[in-house]
Structures are given as C-alpha cells and as structure tokens.
Design a protein around this nucleic acid. Sequence first.
RNA 1: GGUCCGUUCGUCUAGGGGUUAGGACAGUAGAUUUUCAUUCUACCAACAGGGGUUCGAUUCCCCUACGGACUACCA
Length: 513
Amino acid sequence: MEREVRVRFAPSPTGPLHIGGVRTALYNYLLARKLGGKMLLRIEDTDQNRFVPGAEKYIMEALRWAGIEIDEGPEQGGPHAPYRQSERKPMYRQYAQQLIDSGHAYYAFDTPEDLDVMRARLTAAKVPNPQYNAITRNQMRNSLTLPEDEVKELLATDVPYVIRLKVPRKEEVRFQDLIRGWVVVHSSAIDDKVLMKSDGMPTYHLANIVDDHLMEITHVIRGEEWLPSAPLHVLLYRYLSWESTMPQFAHLPLLLKPDGTGKLSKRDGDKLGFPVFPLEWHGQDAETGEPTISSGYRESGYLPEAFINFLAFLGWNPGSQQELFTMDELIESFSIERVSKSPARFDQNKVRWYNEQYLRAKPDTELAQYLLAALREHNIECSEEKAVQIAGVMKERVTFPQDFWREAQYFFQAPTSYDEQVIAKKWNAPTAAALAEFARELPASSDVSPDGIRALLTQVLERQGIKIGQVLQALRVAVTGVTAGPDLMATMSIIGTAETAQRIETAVQRLPQ
RNA sequence: GGUCCGUUCGUCUAGGGGUUAGGACAGUAGAUUUUCAUUCUACCAACAGGGGUUCGAUUCCCCUACGGACUACCA
C-alpha cells in the first residue's frame, strides 16, 4: 500500500529563520501539496543552551507570511503531538536503550577533559581524523572497556554519562539521494556519535530518526550540510529495525553568500547589503548584549508572492520558460528531481524584478491602500478615488509599496523647491508668460480630464506661438518641482485644476525670468 | 588534513554524444514617450583545465584545479 506522503520542516529555534531555511520549508511544502500529503513543523529544541526566546514564534510567523501552510505542528497539533522535541524528551530514552540492548550502542563515561586529551593525543600522533570510533573507543572509559560491575555501579550513581552509537569499523553505508543519486560513505569516516547527552536529552541524530519514524515521515528534505551525517542516520534506521520504512532523502544545494564564499548564515544579518531574514528580527549582540535589529523582506516592502517565486527558482526550475508562478502553479509544477545539485547565490536584482512584476499585477484599488495607509500616517486627507488614480499612474514606476508615497508626494504637497537644471535651461519670459495665461484660464475650464487640460494648454500655446515641447518640462517642474513623473496631463488632472493653477502662479512669481 | 558534494553567460538556470548552446535578471544600444520610468527591439556574454571512450564530446569515464559542506554531549 502506498504510504501517505508526509514531510517535515524541522528548524531549531536558535534564532530567526534565514532565507535558506525558508526555501527548505518551501520545497517541503511544495512536495507535500503536490503529492497530496501532509506538511509538519517540528521544533528541534534539544539543545537547551542555545534556546532563543521568540525564535519559535518568529519561525511560525515567517512561514505564515510566506504562505507556507502547516498541517501538523506545535500550533495546530496533530496525531503525533507534541511537535516540540523538548516535550518529547521521555520518548527517546527507550530507543537508545533498544540500541544498547541490541549491542549497537554503549555507555560512555568520559569527561569533556578526557575527550580533549584523546583528541590532543591523536592530533600529536598525526592521526588524520581524530575521532571517537571503532579504534579509539577501546582506550576510553565506556561500557565496552569497563568491567560490567563497574558499569552498573557507575550507572547507579549520578556520574554523568552519554550513550554513543557503536559504528562498525569497516562497512560501506549507502543510500539513494533523490537529488544526488547514490551516496556512499565508509563507516570509518563516521565517529561514534553521541545519541543521548548527559543531560538526558537526545542529540539531533537520535531525535530526528525517532521522530521521523514515529511521525511517519516519507521524505526528508533538508540542506546539504546534512549530507555527511546521512549515512549515520541510515545506520540508525537499520539498527532500530526501521529500514523498511526509512524515508527518502533529498539534500538541497546550499544558498551561498553573493561573493560565493561560504554558505549564507543567520549571522550575516544585514552585512551583505540585503536582508537574509524573511521578517525583521529583534535580537541582541552576542558579545555586548546590545539590542540589534536585522531587516526583513516583509518590512522592506517585498510581497510574499514575489519573495516565494524568487526563492523557488533558487535551485529549482520547471524546465519551461515561464518565470512568474503563483504558489498554486509552483505546487503544480514542482518535482524534487528538478532541484539542481549545485549551490546558488542570491541575486538582489532579480528579487526586485519579481517584486515589480507582482506589484504591477495588482489592481489599482489594492495598490491604493498602500498609499492611503502612508497618507494617514502623515495626516493627509485623500479620497479613495484619488488614491486609486495615483496608484494607476504610478504602478509602472515603483518597486516597493512604500515607493507610492515617496514618489507621489507632489500630488499632495506643492513644491517647495524647483529642479535647478530645468529652470536654468527651460524657464524664460515667453514660457512664464504662456504658463501664466494657462494658469489663469485653467480654473474655469469645464473639462478637467487629461485630454481636456491638454486641449486648453495647446490652445493657449498656439495663441502665444510657442510649441508644446518647449514648455512642458518647465510646466512639470512648476507643478511638481521635479523632472520625472507620470504623464503630466494626468498628473495635473489628479492634482486638480485649481491647485495646479495656483502652483503655476506661485512658480511664475518665485522663479527668475 | 580527512570524508562527502559540486563546477554551462556577471547572477539564476535550460539543454544534452552531432544545437547558430536557449531563457530570465543585470549591463549596453536603439525605438516609443513632453520627462523619468514602463514597454518593445537588438547587442554583449558561458560549457574550469587535461586525459580518455567515440567517426564525433559541452554532454559519458578518469585525473587535476577551484569552490563548498561536514569533521561537538550544536542543529
């Protein structure tokens, strides 16, 4: 019987999610939806030392903003609750015990100092890969080397100990990665990983295998940084006798810093010149403890659709020439086989381009709301109708929602200064005279449409014997103060004939001829 | 150092034993526009190197180089 597809996104709440994490979540989500399965969110908080308050909430909010819906998780619950590993603590012990009973794991009583000494000794002896393994475990203090009685005694006391996996000395471990094909690693390259820490918490390796099994996960889609430890996970499935239902693995290519040196990390914050986080993050400096703010895509004005579309294409493509995809289209077209193997760099230009595309596709009435919100903040009255008109003429010229207000202020405020270059070149007595006459007649004009205003202007200029091209730049600067903007006739029409006339008169008075 | 993964225009990528190696972003030029932007058109620009296999390799294999990940009682 075909198993229901179940995938999980399993972040550790040690800070904000960065865009690489969002992409991992996205690919998991796309696969789940594509195959009619379930998307789980599991919080991997087994390291109590690295707990960061607010991180879990941030992760959930970021996913929600991005449009990645969770079917089972800490918030929504589900048949395999709880979905926080710290709350599942009692469940892991028995599996570690099972491994000990079957001879695949053992107790180790070495102190951190013992381990340091061991590593130092191996390094001094020029051992290529100092690790706790099939060879070195014989020289350490563990249930393999100590007499049985002593082990029992130690366990009965409160001497701290860990449980380690007994990795075979010589064995090829292989698995098939959905993206990379067969991956083979020799067991000698894997060390005797700690499964249970001395604080009673499982490590990632144990917890993730146990939870994936219990939660009936069918596909593990995670970052490439997990590739080297995947064989270890295969070994765990085998020793726990779960190999027949072991999930399929897919290791995603990393997201690199734009200069190509190293993977993107959350510590990059704002250092790269673009946000690495979906949402703004309020944290604190690791050394000084000072509060810090890292910018986010949401606050920078990126639309989630654009952000997601861009992110989906970082390491995946549909094989067609289509660039713009809604979430539903992404789901429809997604396949894990088309994820590329090689790492990708973030391209700021392209995210911006995506944002412009999605912004322009929105109806004017919706875009007008961005402007209206900014106007309210500045205590400026504006009818919805007027805001819709402005949005309509401005939409081709903006990248972010906040650009509407920034670029369109002259619709509400008369210019306080005028572009000097245009004035020097285009402002002269005949022009001023013609514009003055235009301004005198404009308020009485019955047709206030762009075409009507144009007709009046043409009429006035004809009387004066001036060509329209000679005065338009001057007129624009007189009305708006700046040289660039949407169609001037439409601009004047939106500003209103009375206000436009007044602005022209002001300019005629103030500017030298 | 060791293990593993990767390498097509500046960037994201398509392709795949015989192609004018395709698209998108960026860049450049032109057209449109009263301006700027948009839009349109064109241009620029890539198979890391060396060996094989083959009639023929950018494509398959090997080596080298380069890049990256991992190498914790972190995930």
